[in-house]
Design a binder for these strands. Structure first.
Lengths: 302, 302
DNA sequence: TTTAATGATAAGATTTTGCTTATCATTAAT
DNA sequence: ATTAATGATAAGCAAAATCTTATCATTAAA
């Protein structure tokens, strides 16, 4: 099939269906010679006659039937694709790949869920990974959008804050500082902190914060999740600094308490992030808008 | 998908596969801008970006993946069709619709069978009908080739003889004339004949023959098949005129005998027939050639 | 910082495509 | 025998498609 064109197939389809060159010409708003020429060219590419004329009537040859079958299949493929693409444009369908940094695990699912409720036919994939891996995924364009607390500097990145992310100091309710108010920052130097691993956003923010205030902390154990930190703090192994958003349950059940330290909470934000050249799909764009407009009030209702 | 072209899909496929405009350009022996332009046009028809560029690498968008899926399907359709058509051209595959007049039933199957043995993948359909129906089918282009003893005059017909079709007078072996030699034609006037129905080729040929020799026959019963005539003749109800080719079994088993009448056998032929405008497929042409070249020696071996 | 590679964009030349009008040949119907 | 309809063919024209060269911007690597 060296040089078949869609035009040829379209004209051919009309002729094969009507079994008349003239009728097909009318249907396509063409003159009859135009139709004859298209068919002739198609027959030339195919290398076999597609019609035969017996008296005044025309019939499809076997080869013609084969081409007809084929052209109908192709038309179907195209219209299927057109439908799918149309839905993609219109938000009715799409895939959404989100990666979030571990800590976001405490609120991201809620956001995704309510977004999905509004948009049927959106297939969703959420990956919860640590900051390091997320940076890697970002570099390799493995997701549509990322959610993180500390956007990287180097890469060409677009990062927009959409939710407050206060970091607070936690302690077991039995801790001596639990009852105090306006604890001076320097007081913390006497305590041991259980911290996240190097490279973690929370760890970085925390270190920078204390360094800015001229403090050096004694860090005890390193944990790879906030959950682990909370458990260790509960067990009395030291204090911790975590995002406020991760504490809902523990505060309610009074397993942990937030210390009233001066200059705290550390004011940070959650960012929705993607690389600069990224072509956001309709769905991705919609989700981003959703985060920017509605996340705050969903997570921290008035 | 208003105006997608095969060219666009072809170029797109190469880019999507290589994930590089420049590589695709090399593969297609084009310059890189040519590729960029084709893609741009395709994206315009589709209405969505198909690629995204993140740094130096390009990736398919979701829409791009959909178009890729579609373009591969289309390519597959085309190559399937190309394969089938190629086989049609090369005789490796094809359909063959043959209609034969009732009498040919005695030898046509044998010919078709041996033709099919040589050509695997040829689908065959044989219709055995009376002359009247066959003429109708011919007018409506319902078959590729027909086999008959008396091609019609009116229609634009191409008819070529490929096999001798001698008509002989048959009688039961017990008939008084069975033992005689060189029976004068006029002697037959005293006999009763069992004949085929009006419109039958054999009947026409027979009537014309006797008319030419100035004889009028007394016709008895009319039968619609040669088989019925043979049965009736065996039963002693009269003489018959049939094609020699139908008699193999009856002669061998001595149920019937051929009378040695002057001027007999009536010399006729079997014709392979199709309408003038007919586009013979490769298979049909091959079968026609086969009949013209080999039928005689297959049916009447030396 | 420089260099090499990648893709986008613009301008322009050329080829191809697709169409129309005019005319002819064949066929079926009147 | 005429007539009406169908498709084929030829000539000519306008639009488009396609490609190339030249140049630029961006990015990653040396």
């Amino acid at each position: 099939m060296l040089h078949v064109t869609f035009r040829q197939l379209k004209v051919f389809e009309a002729v094969a269906r009507q079994l008349s060159f003239s009728r097909a010409a009318e249907e396509l708003h063409l003159t009859q010679p135009a139709v004859s020429m298209q068919i002739k060219q198609l027959e030339e590419s195919v290398g076999l006659p597609l019609f035969e004329q017996i008296g005044k009537k025309i019939f499809l040859t076997d080869a013609g039937n084969e081409v007809y079958r084929c052209s109908r299949n192709i038309a179907e493929q195209l219209s299927d694709a057109e439908a799918v693409l149309g839905e993609m444009k219109g938000l009715k369908r799409g895939k959404l790949n989100i990666s979030v940094v571990s800590t976001a695990n405490y609120f991201a699912p809620q956001l995704l869920a309510s977004f999905c409720q509004r948009h049927e036919n959106v297939t969703l994939s959420l990956k919860v990974v640590n900051r390091e891996i997320l940076l890697n995924q970002l570099a390799n364009n493995e997701m549509d959008l990322a959610v993180m607390g500390l956007p990287p500097e180097g890469l060409d990145i677009i990062a927009e804050p959409f939710l407050a992310n206060p970091l607070v100091v936690i302690a077991p309710p039995s801790h001596p500082l639990a009852a105090e108010r306006s604890i001076p920052l320097t007081r913390l130097a006497q305590e041991t902190f259980i911290v996240r691993e190097q490279g973690s956003g929370t760890r970085s923010a925390m270190e920078r914060f204390f360094a800015q205030h001229g403090l050096t902390l004694s860090t005890g154990m390193e944990m790879s999740t906030d959950e682990a930190i909370k458990q260790a703090v509960q067990a009395g192994m030291g204090l911790g600094v975590v995002s406020m958003l991760t504490l809902t349950l523990e505060l309610e059940t009074r397993r942990l308490t937030v210390l009233d330290v001066e200059s705290f909470p550390i004011r940070r934000n959650w960012f929705v992030v993607h690389r600069k050249g990224k072509r956001l799909s309709a769905v991705a764009q919609a989700f981003k808008d959703f985060l920017l407009k509605e996340a705050e009030q969903m997570i921290v209702p008035d």
